[in-house]
Design a binder for these strands. Structure first.
Lengths: 181, 181
DNA sequence: GTCCGCATGTAAGGCGTTACATGATTAA
DNA sequence: TTAATCATGTAACGCCTTACATGCGGAC
């Protein structure tokens, strides 16, 4: 049985944004189109079904007809259960698999932490994040050392890029911890 | 009409690996499981259908029954059309959208360039890659400057992480150009 | 003689993509 | 009044995920 906190990345983004302030589907599309959150969908075919799903789950509530005009418009706001789910999702421990397969998710979980989980939990997240990355980098480095003699030039450079990316993330996390304290 | 070089990331990975040497589906699974190429599938439900698709497209050929035992085993090798498609795909110009939405693809395209496209094309790729990133970073920075006063602490830090990641990639590309020459 | 690794597959389900569709409002 | 923007949706499709299924061969 899957945990109730198992959100798709898009659902997490939507839930996180709505938790900050009530938004319509169109508002969400604009956010995804015009801000750096925007390596997301922004397509109606993704957003409206996702909104429907998290509404059916009871995580958000849609209110219709608050505008002066009769133009259809649904403003979604976070529900108590949605906030609980979000909190639980943001509080999940950082696993190795998260670092390898769901880096986007991790970054989004972090980005939404203000006001949802405490500063202590946020720092804890960053510490785990950094140490999981360290462990993964050690593995990658080990593989790299044993394989670099047979890797073609571009393959080698691509691997170096990957390792440097992870190292940058760990450094960033440690700087972020300093700044939060 | 979509160009014939519009490969899914997984298909690109498979085609690129098979272009280096003949492999079975199981070999591919092992690569995805045990090497840093492995933030891929590695699940039979992804690999075998993908292999079937690129075989049906005439990009690889499967040979059965070369082993001494009668255990079923299909070795795939690159076909002329597959090599052409791969070459064309790797030669595509680096667009802004690639940088924003398909960074994984870009890295994989680069990783497979040895022996497929010339060094000149490879360097050209890295130059375009770096300058597209520069342009994107300028945009992000612009957005960040205008939004940082209203962004919550974690949101701000997450954005900084994103920008730094792009900057790292541009620096890596420029170092890679030096190394290739 | 049983367990583990090799080796290939199928079925159901989820979810994002593209493309299409529809109608209201506002600015030129 | 015509185009652009607001605003919400549906339908077809592709492809990955998870889970299940199956059988051979070697090692202990």
């Amino acid at each position: 049985m899957k945990p109730e906190t198992d959100l798709s990345t898009l659902s997490l983004a939507i839930l996180g944004l709505i938790s900050q302030r009530p938004l319509t589907g169109y508002d969400l599309r604009k956010v995804f189109l015009t801000t750096p959150m925007g390596h997301f969908s922004s397509s109606p075919g993704a957003i409206y079904p996702a909104l429907r799903r998290i509404e059916d789950a009871g995580w958000v509530r849609g209110r219709t007809g608050e505008s002066k005009t009769r133009r259809e418009r649904v403003v979604y706001e976070i529900a108590a259960r949605g906030l609980a789910v979000l909190k639980q999702h943001l509080s999940r421990p950082v696993t190795r698999d998260d670092v390898i397969w769901r880096m986007d998710d991790l970054m989004m979980r972090f980005a939404f932490m203000d006001g949802i989980v405490g500063r202590e939990m946020t720092v804890r997240f960053l510490e785990d994040f950094a140490s999981q990355i360290d462990a993964h980098v050690a593995d990658l480095q080990h593989y790299f050392d044993s394989a670099k003699s047979i890797l073609p030039a571009c393959g080698k450079l691509a691997m170096e890029n990957g390792i440097q990316g992870y190292e940058m993330n760990a450094q960033w996390a440690r700087r972020a911890i300093q700044e939060l304290q």
